[in-house]
Write a protein that binds this DNA or RNA. Sequence first.
DNA 1: ATGGTTTATTAAAATCATTCTAAACTGTTT
DNA 2: AAACAGTTTAGAATGATTTTAATAAACCAT
Lengths: 143, 143
Amino acid sequence: MTGLDRPENAAAAQDRIRASGLRPTRQRVALARLLFARGSRHVTAEALHGEAGGEGIRVSLATVYNTLHQFVRVGLLREVMVNPGRSYFDTNVGAHHHFFHEASGELNDIDAAEVDLSSLPEPPAGTRIERIDVVIRLRDDRS
Amino acid sequence: MTGLDRPENAAAAQDRIRASGLRPTRQRVALARLLFARGSRHVTAEALHGEAGGEGIRVSLATVYNTLHQFVRVGLLREVMVNPGRSYFDTNVGAHHHFFHEASGELNDIDAAEVDLSSLPEPPAGTRIERIDVVIRLRDDRS
DNA sequence: ATGGTTTATTAAAATCATTCTAAACTGTTT
DNA sequence: AAACAGTTTAGAATGATTTTAATAAACCAT
């Protein structure tokens, strides 16, 4: 019994990947299991690579990048940009927003229902809204 | 009469910079004149450097970066992150949001009044809201 | 199972934006 | 004008990400 038998088991990860039209390779399955084990996660490529290494999974950083981008393309992940020069990948692909604690770099989900976005401008002619990102930037309260 | 006599004249740029507590050096004044000439602009460091070069202003890229960050620090500019690996600097420091056209990389302002953000979750204990960024991502309408 | 084809993985090099360094310079103040 | 502090700069360094070209693994039809 390895440390990876539980979270999202291999079969589930494999199905999830295959259902998205990707080949369930050893490294994609392993990364999917890490990513989708817990609920909502926000990881950087480097962090996931490190985590994989710690679990004894041998994957190159290039493959981690490839996999993350493929997962984004097929809708398994979402890319969040809050920090210059570093992308976060979010396992929550439902409608939601983020708290971003600038000092720690920590991201936390806000359910879409908690933010009222009913009053919005019309998109420019010839374009349509693909998605709306709300980022609430936080700083430590000095009180 | 150089091409730079009009937009924001040298004196105005100098005052603006001095009022912010920075020394009005030749390069800071020149960059301020470019930045604050027209209304609302969204520039990258590289783009501004290129623009300066085109106007015959000799400034190093390092200085452009330094200046942009200093201007952000004193509130003359705002940094916007919408694209992985590239920061935009926004001359509009008032309350507003953005349309982001992913295909072209173009950013456009949305007045804060056009977005209702009255319904928001409480920030986590010990933190307070520093600012809220709303990015409406656009794609070309396929119709 | 096997062979052939396609698609993935990888280490290493390359790229890109950005930051740092240390020296030369400019603005300001005395 | 000298002295000091703050700036600019070229070039090197960094850090994240992407590319390359070769190797390996998954898939499909035997």
